[in-house]
Amino acid sequence: MKRTKTIIILVTIAVLFTVSMYWLYSKNIQDPIVYTTDNASIGTIVKKTVATGSIVPKEEVLIKPNISGIIDEIYVEAGQVIEAGDLIAKVKVVPNVSSLNSAQSNINGVRTQVETARLAFQNQKNIYNRQKELFEKGVISANEFDNAQLSYDQAQQRLKQEEVSLRAANQNYDIIKTGTTSGLGASANTEIRATVSGMVLDVPVKTGNQVIEANNFNDGTTIATIADVDKMIFEGKVDESEVGKIKEGLPLEITVGALPDRSFEAELDYIAPKGVSENSAIQFEIKGTMKKTDTSKTFIRAGLSANASIILAKAEEVLTLKEALVQYDPETQKPFVEVMTGDQKFERRDVELGISDGINVEVKNGISKDDKIKVWNQLKPPAPTKQG
């Protein structure tokens, strides 16, 4: 009886062992990893960094008045193309009482000086005439006559200077009172004219607005902004982590948010020598001159936001490979790939890499276009869930 139980127990253990071994074997051979492959291709690799900014005119001229007053008329509007010398606006002068009184007092003072100079001149003229008669009769010497003539000429010159000063004082009074005077012609202060040719970008004033003249203590009121829209630049900023990678002369590829289907070429020609802290990050200003475009087909408005792709390096018509297919030796850190040699059989192949755009990388040596490269880090499809 005991022997029978022992046999049954041994048989049961053997069966369980056999079932366990079969189960382990089945688990070992099921669901093998089947590696897929990918090929290298001929393409272009562009390594670039991006800067944000806007499109602005290269030169922007602010037109300001030479006299304070009120805008009487405006002759231009934004978007209009004008030439240098064209009339932009007219200013009506509102005279300052204090300045008028000062100018009037100055005139009175100069008139007194003119009368004094005229009396002195008349006196010297009489002396000169008497000395001349005496000299012709031989009563006085030539030296005495020369002194009389010199005094006469000096008195006459002094009278002319005082008369010029009086005219200037009168003109100054007229300018303070009306903004212009006789003799100014086209340079009348009340007429504001364009100093350059270009497009009017903005007219920030309206008829009736008060304007202030530009002087040493005040920038003055801007009446119009004029720029040559054929000469536009990209103006943006790059982070300090990128500024060391760029240099003047690099090509830019400009994309404008308002024109998503087009890109524009430019050249980087300015990098600020000093950074500015913005939101706890150091930013460096950059500028790039845009190549001239046909404004009849595409008009780039000043102030449009834009992004500039700064081309750091470019390789055209080279062998490229997805960077995810490249592996690195854990000890030497040298790059390599695994090339298929048979059914699910691969061999290691060291490669020499060039520039990378973060997705694809240039392969200079090690593989060919026809080699099948192992996708070593492929993702397994998710296991099917049981429907309950």
Rank of each mutant, 00 (worst) to 15 (best):
F284C: 01
P204D: 04
I176D: 14
I311H: 06
N215S: 14
S187I: 07
L268D: 02
K297Q: 14
K177G: 05
A313C: 00
S309R: 13
V256N: 11
D219I: 06
S277R: 08
D261P: 10
G198S: 12
A194K: 11
S280Y: 05
R193D: 14
A306I: 07
I192A: 12
A302F: 03
A313G: 00
V276L: 01
A306K: 03
I223Q: 08
E278W: 03
M199P: 07
G208H: 06
A281K: 05
E278N: 07
G185V: 11
I311P: 05
K231N: 14
G220M: 04
G198N: 13
L252V: 07
S263C: 12
L268F: 03
S309C: 08
F299P: 11
D202H: 07
N216R: 12
T181S: 11
D269M: 01
A214F: 09
E248L: 00
M199A: 13
K237S: 01
V203I: 04
P204R: 04
S296H: 15
T221Y: 10
Q171T: 06
A188I: 03
T180V: 10
I254T: 06
K177Q: 11
S309P: 08
N215L: 10
L268P: 01
G257S: 13
L259V: 15
G236E: 07
P273K: 10
N279F: 00
E240A: 07
V211A: 12
T255D: 12
T195E: 15
Q210E: 15
Q210K: 15
A306H: 05
E235L: 03
D230Y: 11
S263L: 14
Q210I: 14
A258R: 08
D228M: 04
A194Y: 14
L201W: 05
T225K: 12
